[in-house]
Simulated assay, not measured.
Amino acid sequence: MAGYVCPVGSSSPHARSNACPPGTFSNHLHLFDKSQCETCPARFVCTRGTGGKQKPPVPCPVGHYCPPGTKYPAQYKCAPGTWSNRTSLASEEECLPCPAGWFCVAGAHVPSGRCSPGHYCPDGTRTSTQFPCPAGTYSTRLGNGRVEDCIACPVGSYCTDGTSKPTLCPVGTYRKEQGAKVSEDCVPCPGGYHCPELGTVAPQACGAGRFSDPGSASCLSCLVGHYCADEITSREAMLLAMVCPAGLLCPEGQAVAPDANGNACPRGYYCPRGDIVRGSVWLLLFTILSSSGLCFWEARVESVLLLESLPALGCLIFLLWFP
Rank of each mutant, 00 (worst) to 15 (best):
S10Q: 07
S11V: 13
H14P: 02
A15F: 15
S17L: 08
N18M: 07
P21T: 05
F25I: 00
N27R: 07
N27L: 05
N27P: 01
H28P: 00
L31Q: 00
K34Q: 10
S35F: 00
S35W: 00
V45P: 01
C46G: 07
G52P: 03
K53W: 09
Q54F: 11
K55M: 13
P57Q: 13
P57V: 11
P61C: 07
P67S: 08
P68Q: 12
A79E: 12
S88Y: 09
A90K: 14
E92P: 09
E92Q: 12
C98V: 05
P99Y: 03
G101D: 08
H109F: 06
V110L: 04
R114F: 08
H119D: 04
H119Y: 15
T129A: 07
F131C: 14
P134G: 12
A135E: 09
T137I: 02
S139C: 09
D149A: 11
A152I: 02
S157Y: 10
C159T: 11
T163F: 04
T167N: 06
L168D: 02
C169T: 08
A180Q: 06
K181S: 12
K181G: 09
S183K: 13
L198C: 08
V201H: 07
C206K: 01
A208W: 03
F211Q: 06
S212F: 04
D213Y: 12
C222P: 00
H226S: 04
Y227L: 01
E231P: 02
T233H: 02
E236T: 05
A237N: 09
C244Y: 00
P251M: 08
G253L: 12
A257S: 13
P258A: 10
D259L: 09
A260L: 14
N261L: 10
G262Y: 09
N263K: 12
A264R: 15
Y269A: 13
I276W: 10
I276S: 04
R278E: 11
L289Q: 14
S290V: 13
S292M: 11
S292L: 15
S303C: 06
L305Y: 15
P311K: 07
P311T: 08
C315P: 00
